[in-house]
Design a protein around this nucleic acid. Sequence first.
DNA 1: AACAAATTTCCTGGTT
DNA 2: AAACCAGGAAATTTGT
Length: 320
Amino acid sequence: MEPSFDSLESSLSFEDSLLHSSNIDNLYHTYLGSMDTFPAAYSGSENYSTGQLNLQCQSLHDRTARQRGAHLETFQNVSVSDWRGEECAAWASSVCRRRGLDQNAVDLCSFRTLSGSLVLQFSLQDFCSLVGDDVGRLFYKDLRAQVKRQGADYLEDQGEGNSSIFSADSNAAQDDDSWTYTKDDFQALDNYILEDTWDPQSDSLQDLDLQEQFVPIKYERGPKSWEFLVRLLADSRTNPSVIRWEDEVDATFRLTQPDSIARMWGARSGKPSLSYVNFARGLRYHYNTGALEAVSERQLVYRCGPKALQYLKQLKQEGL
DNA sequence: AACAAATTTCCTGGTT
DNA sequence: AAACCAGGAAATTTGT
C-alpha cells in the first residue's frame, strides 16, 4: 500500500548491521522529523510532578541537544564508578522517565557536578536531601539496581542467554536476521520519543505545591502500553508517521507502523525483540479495563476507551 | 514472602 | 498465503 512503509521497513530491519547507528538516524529523520516544533507532553500519567526549581537550568537544553545528537546513553555502558557528571545526569534523567516523574522536578543540573564514585557513596539520606525524600528513595534504589545490573553484564559476560540479545559488537553478528541495534540504541530512541518532553512554559504555569502534589502516593511504572499509544498520538513527530487518527471524532486510530511501535515499546523495557504480535496481545488485555476498545473490522485499528480519552485530554491540556 | 497488576510469550483457531 | 484478531494459559517483572 504505502510506499513509505515498505522502504522504511526494509531500511530498518535488514542487512545493514554495520550501519545500525545511521539507521537510527534515518529513523529519526524519517519518522520523527524535526522536533524543534514539538509541543511538549508530560512523561508521567497521574504521578507527574509539576514544576519545581531550576527552570532556568541551561543544561536542560544541553541534555536535550546531546540526546538528539548522541544515539547512545553512555551511562549504561560505563561502570558507575567511572561516571562523569554527564552520565550521572543521564542516569538521573532516565530514572525520572522510568518512574514517570517529571524531569523538571529534579535538579538534573546538580547531578552534572557529581561523579560516579561520589554517587556510589551516597546514602539514602544523601539522595533524599538532594532530590527530596520520596524521589530520593527511588534514586537510591535505582542506583543499586544499576550497579547490580552492570555487575551481571560486565563481570560475567560469558554470553548467557540475555546478553546475547543485544549484540553490541554490531559487525560480528553475521547471521542476525533482523536488526542489530543495541540496547542503548533502542533506549536512545525511547528517550527521543518519550523523555524529551520538558516544557518550561507549561511548567511554569502550574508550579504549585510541589512537595505534596508531586510525590506520588503510589509509585507506578512508566506509561502503560495504551498510554504510550496515546502519547504517540499526541506527538506531532509520530502522529501522522507511525500512528494516526482514523477518525478522531470516533476516537479510532490506526497503527501505521506497528512493528516500529512495538520495537519502541519493547526498547523501553529492554526487550528490543518485542513483536507487534506480543505487543498487541497486551493491548487486547486493555479492552476490559476501559482503556481501549476493539475495532476488529479494520486491521491495526483501535479505539480509545474512556481512560485513553481522559489521558489524551490530560496530555493536551498539560503538555500544550 | 505472598500478592497483585501489567506485560510478555506461546498458541490454537478464525478472519480479512 | 500473509498478516491480523480473539483470548486462554502460563511465565515474568515490579511494586505493595
